[in-house]
């Protein structure tokens, strides 16, 4: 197998269509043939991925969020120029994608949809959850975000507005969750442990200190 195979196709990144990298094409090709021939069950693959993805390499977003909580000037920078503020911690995407941080407040909750192609900023957030790739999630999140959040166990006050952000190939979003109560004086390292992946895509909240699993 030639690892250096390159497609002659034009790899431009537009809004109008989706894109898979060469390596993603290889994995999808292999999996789809194995499924057709009855060697693997796609649902079983999803379960395996979900089982192992709990321990994912880069989930640098937690450090970004913790720093923003602890350092107001960093938070301002993150809100103005998330790409640069995130890069300053040494976390950069492969394609130099543009990051935007959206901040949750008591008045407004942010939620990100669409991770179907290569839009999902995994160097920052870790692997996307399997359910996130499903069409129903995306369409329902746009139509009924409050209902979708409720299914994730998140009930927000009626007065909190919910904004839904659709990632594109050029812009990826990071939700800056609200800092939990009772964490005054915590180190950035301890704070980062409260930041879940779901809280950074807006389908969850940051953990409260009493929700921390005793390590």
């Amino acid at each position: 197998m030639d690892d250096h195979h390159h497609h002659s196709h034009d790899h431009h990144h537009g809004h109008d269509h989706s894109e898979l990298s060469d390596i993603e094409l290889r994995v999808r090709a292999l999996e789809s043939i194995l499924v057709e021939k009855g060697y693997v069950d796609p649902a079983a693959i999803d379960v395996l991925v979900e089982t192992y993805e709990t321990k994912v390499g880069p989930r640098n977003g937690g450090k970004v969020v913790a720093k923003a909580w602890a350092d107001p000037s960093y938070r301002d920078w993150l809100r103005k120029d998330a790409t640069a503020a995130i890069a300053s911690l040494g976390f950069t995407g492969r394609q130099g994608e543009h990051m935007v941080a959206v901040e949750n407040t008591p008045q407004e909750h942010n939620m990100v949809v669409c991770t179907l192609c290569s839009c999902y900023p995994w160097p920052v957030l870790g692997l996307p959850p399997v359910w996130y790739k499903s069409a129903p999630y995306r369409s329902r999140a746009v139509i009924d975000p409050r209902g979708v959040l409720k299914e994730f166990g998140v009930e927000l006050p009626e007065t909190t507005r919910i904004r839904v952000w659709d990632s594109t190939a050029e812009i990826r979003y990071l939700v800056l969750p609200m800092r939990p109560e009772g964490t005054q004086g915590w180190s950035e390292e301890a704070l980062a442990d409260l930041v879940t992946r779901d809280s950074m895509i807006g389908t969850g909240l940051a953990l409260r200190p009493d929700q921390m699993v005793a390590a």
Binding site: D16, S18, L25, R26, A29, S32, C114, R138, D166
Partner: peptide
């Protein structure tokens, strides 16, 4: 189970499928 040729052909099919899929679906 899957010949090299079958894999190569299938990769092209996925590539065309991706290009024909509007972003976000």
């Amino acid at each position: 189970v899957a010949s090299e040729a079958a894999l190569a052909e299938r990769r092209e099919a996925w590539h065309r499928a991706a290009h024909a899929t509007p972003h976000g679906l």
